[in-house]
Write a protein that binds this DNA or RNA. Structure first.
Lengths: 142, 142, 142, 142
DNA sequence: GTGGTCTAGACCACA
DNA sequence: GTGGTCTAGACCACA
């Protein structure tokens, strides 16, 4: 069962953190179609956030077509975001695991690692089609 | 000069996005001590957000000891977060650039790439000291 | 400006009523792209429902791509649902106005009128393609 | 036998949908005094909702004086809502059937048709007695 | 001033 | 028991 962690000091709304963590789990295949998300009550017990906030996140996921809230039953995954290439035993996965291990061993913090990857993504997307999926295009000035 | 990109619709407050992007640039050494941040006016022109929002972010950065707001002059970096190991020409950088290129070539989206790295970080930190810097510790249940 | 009316005894959630009334106004062209919806405060003054409930409705409309919530500014229509054929001066409009007038004159209640139209729609859609847009297909038994 | 269709996703509670559909059938004369409603079991088979939900709706209809629940026998219509003017072969019925056919032929969706009729009703009732039966009076501001 | 998040708590819908 | 709506109120983000 997915284990949400809410970082209360990050400035990112709690419900956004739940949505993001759920989407990541879907992309990684950690959550599959039919899987049950934790009940609001369980999330409350684990994270000390309010059940309304959990439901707000689940509703957003529902409107994104990823889960279904069934009253009296629970919340269930209805769509996968799993990617070929991101499986547990794929070469890319093995490589990144290895790379992260070395980065951490060299003393880099979690934030350093994410900064390096983000920088690599930015550099890549600037060189290629800048409207690659996932990177928000620059906002036009109004 | 750092080029902020605000993703309205991400749910993350605009000022948080500015702070995060600035910190990443500091970690990567893209911004160095003495460098000038864009003026609020320039950011407004580039992102269509309100100058107050930019100043809010700069004040947060100032309180974190990273920049200094000099009235009438601008905002300047006062502390580096650059890491040995994250330099432009370090092996880790070359490897991650290469890895990202291959991941993108295999059709993975930006979000997939970030999900894979986050998963690798989570797995690593769970195996080692789970209170590694940067990863918020689990909240205690109340 | 659109004038919401909440029927508290209908069993239909208040936020759904706001969403439905807004969509109807968009379909009729009563609301156009760029138009401002009433502020939450104004709706509260007019309907005695809670501002959170209004915002819940506006958020749903935003996720449907119909409006944009701009903090500090208000909520604005971003997409029209206006239909050729439904304009104020179209033959269909004139005919239905006339028909409603006669139905009411014969003593039929609002609910009777809606029941007759719904019945006519059901009959029509059963004869033609039953998956015509707007009518939910029968749910498969599980 | 009346054929209930539950639109999950409409935001309208399932039991309200059953009540509304039953009332419409009574207004149209599709259901007459003495007619039997489907058993909860039959509705469950057709709609995949829980029998308790069906019973909840039937109890509401009973309290409205429209049906009677007879233990072991079933649920029976005890009162008609049929209206002169709404019969199958009335001029108003023929006209609305014709009008709906043309509206659909012009590409209008079910929701467009209902929006047009609702707009016509609103316009009519605003001009005449605004407390016409069936339209909820405006809520007084608090 | 306008929208946004979050909470606690009441009550409801559904299984 | 699980999700859903609504409220009042506190505090925040943004213009």
């Amino acid at each position: 069962m997915i284990d949400y962690r809410i970082d209360r000091g990050s400035g990112v709304p709690a419900y956004v953190q739940i949505v993001e963590q759920t989407e990541r789990a879907l992309r990684m295949g950690f959550l599959k179609v039919g899987d049950k998300l934790p009940t609001a009550k369980e999330v409350v017990a684990a994270t000390a956030i309010n059940p309304n906030t959990v439901l707000r996140a689940y509703r957003d996921l529902e409107q994104a077509g990823l889960v279904e809230l069934r009253r009296g039953l629970g919340t269930f995954v209805t769509r996968s975001l799993a990617r070929p290439g991101a499986e547990d035993d794929s070469p890319l996965r093995r490589e990144v695991t290895d790379w992260v291990t070395r980065a951490r061993a060299e003393g880099l913090e979690r934030a350093d690692v994410l900064a390096m990857v983000t920088a690599a993504l930015d550099a890549h997307d600037d060189e290629h089609d800048s409207h690659a999926p996932g990177r928000p295009p620059p906002e036009p000035a109004r």
